[in-house]
Amino acid sequence: MFFENPIVQDTLQQATHALVDTATIAHTSGEHGGGFNFMHLLDHMKDSRSVESPLGHLSLPQFTPVHLGSATIDLSITKHVFFLLLCGVLLVIAMMYVARSYKKSLVPHGFVNLLELVIVFLRDEVVLPNMGPAGLRYMPYLLTTFFYILIMNLAGLIPYGATPTGNIMVTAGLAVIAFCMIQISAIRAQGLTHYLAHLTGGAPWYLWVIMVPIEILGLFTKPFALCMRLFANMTGGHIVILSLFGLVLMFRSYIVAPFPLMFIVGIYMLELFVAFLQAYVFTMLTSLFMGLGTQASSHAEDSKH
């Protein structure tokens, strides 16, 4: 419906033309620069139907698309889906190891100690200040979000790896879950009636026609910002690193090569930091938005007294 709109189609067409022009310029400059095509570097970031490995490209299993009404859903495993599942399995194994070690002894050692440090930090510095003691029941969701995003962010920094969070569909999926959790926590804390009353934004009844849709829109902008922030941060760093690699391949000079490489190491370190920071920011903002619902209910109780 949205994509059938002539204005949207016009904009998409113009964007496609611009993209093709850019790719053509990049390709032409590549031909003059000794056969190097910068667009090939960007292929590394795109989703594909094979994964890179020391043995070359390994094809992933493909399934026949499923038809649901007019929609066609392709459930084939792509590079990002593969890493999404791999990160999930790794996370489950790591957490099972942690849970088992606590059964043996309550005193943590090594890796378990490190994880406990992170969990306690998230509980004391993120969940409790933002949501209060009521937020502790949402700790399992918030911790899973943090560790899953972290491990996915880090997956792109290992050789032959790919960052699932560099795919907007993955971050959109995470944002949809965050949206559901924000609404559920708000309804639980305020009750459905107060939650619906909150959607009027405190405006007089004759403004409800305007304000209710705006307030409903506001519910979606928060997870949308979460989704875009994570996606843009994870993609941005990779593009910078690949662009610097592009300089090495473009100049083909031993004198020039060390300088971009130095920058690449610097940006790589920054990416390492950003991987942790973005996982923290996503968790922090989700708990903050969830906490706003709880605060709204306590404000309402205060005003009653």
Binding site: N130, G218, T221, M284, L285, L288
Partner: peptide
């Protein structure tokens, strides 16, 4: 973060 978090999306809105 806590103070300005709720206002991070007013521009997008």
């Amino acid at each position: 973060y806590r103070e300005y978090g709720p206002y991070l999306t007013i521009g997008i809105q």
